[in-house]
Design a protein around this nucleic acid. Structure first.
Length: 626
DNA sequence: CTAGGGTTAG
């Protein structure tokens, strides 16, 4: 078995790694190019990618075809670093053709390496490949647009005197993908009118996308008319693009009608209509469409699962959300970053932060958006301490928060009052120079002002100047009233001065004989709750002579959830429901309290009563606000 | 023997 021809015949039958090793050494010894080509194909089938590259480098003088094939295979596996380094070594041997350049351009697009791309562009010109080859042209335009450089993309396009439909489409797509839908439509119009080039379904998909970005229903409808005129109604992607246009810019009515008459529907069509319903207050319809899709045997993908989860999120349907979570688990979609993030959002919005945290912890790799979802969810659920802990974890892992995250975390700080961290963040914001967009900047400044104001007042409190002033009241000109004490208590709450707050409360009561109102009690209950003194808080509420308001019970319930006290939590929630029976959030909170305690029947019964009343969740409203 | 443009989503 020494002749490469014989070996090549055997390769088709025998595919063991052991045999491969023998072939490898034979290839090195014989310098046979056919064998080298064949063996590289085998490497990809049988070996891990790192090994492939190593072994390939040992093959002496592989021919151009073999090199191109290995570039192609690496492109197919999204291993663009390898493509780029292989290209560089090929170039040093002056062995490149237009296939090589095309694969290298793909790598440039993926790696966003414009300069490398420009070098390849220059090479193509130098070798005179550009004008003889349309493929290279679309590759170049595509590379520049994917690097976000539309000026160079258009210049590359202009190098062609007679561009074909693919080149035109690549330019239109470039503008559309770079959020320049006006330019996209302008180029498309020029193509159809001035150059009389008739479009194909693929061009129209991009044109419809541009109309969607512009929310230009009129233009989209005229494209739709053309679709029928040209007989393209059989194109599923085009139908889906139109469906998306109606879903985004028209109404559920248009989208629903078009969806109904579409001859063929795939998972994209279903996801599109589900997402449309979920975002247009038709959450029940979104969920039933999702069920129908599953029933019809359409395999759900991450996008459809995400849309269905968003529907559960906006109608606070925790049970259905859990059910979809289970489905996602069985379809191995749970570890998809986007699905995990949607699950975190769903659990957080359904007031079940514990489950959200479990999902987050299970994620094999976390991306910044999932951290963000977790952080925002904790803030939304009044878990300021946890959100600050998350923020610190993010910093420790070198995950750079953007301005939006900073706004959230500062909000959490000013709500719960964590003085030390706030001043830390203050300097972080200044050092980080968060000036990205003016809207965020304004928001950031507003929160900062609040935080800084609280910090000043807290320092004042800590110096005990106020206490001295108040204690010496008979001799001073200050005559504090209930409102004065309300601000002092609020400052203690924000600063996290639990003991001082209670002390001031007693001064108010005993030295000034001022009758505290519901709002004063709410702060004290919150302060007691933070140190876990739930019984004391409950005692205090029982002693109250004024009406016990929503804030008081809300503060107690929040504390019960954090300290997992079902007994007192139930009392708090029942009272809250009596005061405001239409607030779905209380039902959810209470059912969570039950669930923690293992009272599943009570939890289920409660969820039933939510459905009966068809309550809408009131989003973003904290029961702890003063 | 290898090659270009497209739809849903955080």
């Amino acid at each position: 078995m020494r002749s490469p021809e014989i070996v090549l015949k055997v390769v088709g039958v025998c595919r063991t790694t052991n045999f491969l090793t023998q072939l490898h050494s034979l290839t090195i010894r014989t310098y046979d190019t056919h064998l080298a080509a064949k063996i590289t194909e085998l490497y990809f089938e049988l070996l891990p990618l790192q090994t492939v590259r190593k072994l390939f480098d040992e093959i002496p003088h592989p021919n151009l075809y073999t090199c191109n094939r290995i570039l192609q295979r690496f492109c197919g596996k999204n291993r663009y670093e390898e493509v780029s380094s292989l290209f560089t070594s090929m170039f040093s041997f002056e062995k490149v053709d237009h296939f090589t350049l095309l694969f290298a351009l793909k790598a440039c697009s993926a790696l966003k390496a414009t300069n490398f791309g420009k070098t390849i562009h220059g090479l193509g010109k130098k070798y005179g490949m550009i004008h003889s080859n349309m493929f290279l042209g679309s590759g170049l335009i595509d590379m520049y647009s994917k690097c976000g450089n539309m000026d160079d993309a258009f210049r590359a396009f202009e190098e062609y005197s007679k561009p074909d439909i693919v080149l035109w489409t690549t330019v239109v797509t470039g503008y559309e993908k770079n959020f320049k839908p006006d330019e996209a439509l302008a180029v498309f119009t020029g193509m159809a009118m001035a150059h009389c080039i008739s479009s194909d379904p693929i061009t129209l998909v991009t044109v419809v996308s541009a109309c969607t970005q512009l929310l230009n229903l009129k233009a989209g409808k005229s494209v739709h008319a053309n679709v029928f005129r040209m007989g393209y109604e059989g194109s599923l992607s085009l139908s889906n693009a139109l469906l998306n246009l109606y879903a985004k810019s028209g109404s559920m009515f248009y989208a629903g009608n078009w969806f109904r008459v579409m001859e063929e529907k795939d998972v994209i069509s279903w996801s599109c209509i589900i997402s449309c319903c979920a975002h247009n207050d038709a959450t029940d319809r979104a969920i039933s469409l999702f069920d129908e899709m599953i029933y019809k045997g359409i395999e759900p993908n991450s996008v459809s699962v995400i849309s269905a989860l968003q529907a559960c999120e906006s109608c606070c349907n925790l049970d259905k959300g859990r059910q979809i979570h289970e489905l996602a688990f069985h379809k191995s979609l749970e570890h998809d970053k986007l699905v995990s993030t949607a699950l975190i959002d769903m659990y957080m919005s359904c007031c079940s932060p514990q489950e959200a945290i479990i999902v987050f912890d299970r994620m094999p790799s976390k991306d910044p958006v999932s951290w963000f979802a977790l952080l925002c969810g904790c803030v939304k659920n009044g878990m300021a301490n946890k959100s600050i802990q998350i923020f610190c974890d993010m910093m420790a892992r070198d995950i750079q928060p953007d301005a939006t995250v900073m706004v959230k975390i500062l909000g959490a700080c000013s709500e719960l009052g964590v003085l030390q961290l706030t001043s830390c963040l203050h300097s972080y914001v200044i050092r980080g120079g968060f000036i990205s967009n003016s809207f965020i900047e304004l928001q950031l400044l507003t929160v900062m002002q609040n935080v800084v104001a609280w910090m000043r007042l807290s320092r004042f409190l800590r110096d005990q100047q106020i206490k001295m002033l108040l204690s010496g009241a008979p001799y001073s000109t200050v005559c504090p009233n209930k409102v004065t004490f309300l601000s002092i208590l609020a400052a203690c709450s924000h600063a996290g001065f639990v003991e001082e707050g209670i002390e001031f409360f007693n001064i108010m009561l005993n030295e000034y004989q001022l009758m505290p109102e519901s709002k004063h009690y709410a702060i004290i209950v919150d302060l007691l709750g933070r140190i876990g003194e739930l019984d004391k808080a409950m005692c205090l509420i029982n002693q109250m002579q004024s009406r016990v308001g929503v804030h008081v019970w809300g503060a107690l319930l929040g504390a019960c959830r954090i300290h997992q006290n079902a007994e007192i939590g139930e009392v708090a929630a029942r009272n809250l429901l009596q005061l405001d029976p239409d607030h779905a959030g209380y039902y959810i909170l209470l059912s969570n309290v039950y669930a923690v305690d293992g009272k599943w029947d009570d939890a289920a019964e409660l969820r039933g009563s939510i459905k009966e009343r068809e309550l809408k969740k009131i989003t973003g409203q904290s029961v702890f606000r003063l």
